[in-house]
């Protein structure tokens, strides 16, 4: 992946937001590396480039810790999509999205797409325990580094936990987000399309989430490219075409 993405200019920006320990890094890791592993609490934000067809999508995996709160709006600047992540076994993590993270998205694009993702669905939902890949079962099943109290023991013993956040709660929050952004519910994408329940551990719904979202930001990419073409600035990079893997000249 680094080979391909090395010199590309990102076309669009997607940001993962959410409280600490909800599994943002794990979700992204599952999607990019196809596996689940122990992660350590993210510091600051981590930047990834994902090749999506002919497009380059930059993904910011941010730290959920309050320590880095002030950076959130910087990561969100100009974002085309924000993935608001919560933990289905933790009501507070959903509440935090509204209290702490929603205001950070003020710097995002005006037509930014908001996805609500309830992670750790494998802890509450038997159907999420079935993994799409068969090799997953053999992998280590430790939850993320700093244990959220309910997560670790249960995931080890395989029992299901009480689900604290239902899809209806998420849909309701989605409605409130639209209102906060001053968007019409009718003209916006419906909640069913943008509320997901996933499991980074088993891989349940993870690809669906990212792929659906990337499809949704495509218009944004195309519009941006059009704008660029119309703009008086000549983009040397653009002229070389996307297949050109040559480097940009070192001019600054």
């Amino acid at each position: 992946m680094p080979e391909v993405s090395k010199m590309k200019k990102p076309d669009v920006k997607v940001v993962l937001l959410g409280d600490m320990n909800v599994g943002k890094t794990s979700l992204l890791h599952r999607y990019t590396e196809r596996r689940f592993k122990d992660t350590i609490s993210t510091v600051g934000g981590a930047f990834f480039l994902k090749q999506w067809g002919p497009y380059n999508i930059s993904i910011w995996d941010t730290a959920g810790r309050e320590q880095f709160h002030g950076l959130g709006s910087m990561y969100c600047r100009g974002a085309a999509a924000v993935i608001l992540t919560y933990d289905v076994t933790n009501w507070q993590s959903l509440a935090e999205l509204e209290e702490r993270f929603l205001s950070l998205t003020d710097t995002a694009n005006h037509d930014c797409i908001y996805a609500l993702v309830g992670n750790k669905a494998d802890l509450t939902d038997p159907k999420a325990q079935l993994s799409p890949d068969s090799d997953v079962a053999s992998e280590e099943c430790e939850e993320s580094g700093c244990p959220t109290p309910p997560a670790s023991p249960a995931s080890l013993s395989g029992m299901t936990l009480h689900k604290q956040v239902t899809p209806e709660d998420a849909a309701a929050l989605y409605g409130r987000i639209l209102r906060y952004k001053g968007l019409e519910e009718k003209s916006s994408l419906p909640a069913e399309k943008l509320c997901f329940e996933t499991s980074a551990k088993t891989g349940y719904n993870v690809d669906t989430l990212f792929e659906a979202l990337f499809d949704l930001v495509l218009p944004c990419i195309l519009r941006k490219r059009n704008e660029n073409q119309e703009s008086p600035t000549v983009d040397l990079e653009e002229c070389r075409g996307t297949s050109n893997k040559r480097t940009r000249s070192a001019c600054c």
Binding site: T42, V43, G44, G70
Partner: peptide, 30 residues
Amino acid sequence: LIGASSAFQAGEIWTPICLPLFNPDCYFYA
């Protein structure tokens, strides 16, 4: 910091960090 935060190494990390002996009151961005 690098040793403790390298669990997910594929990405490019951008984080505020203060060098306390250099200046305990301001951040660098690493």
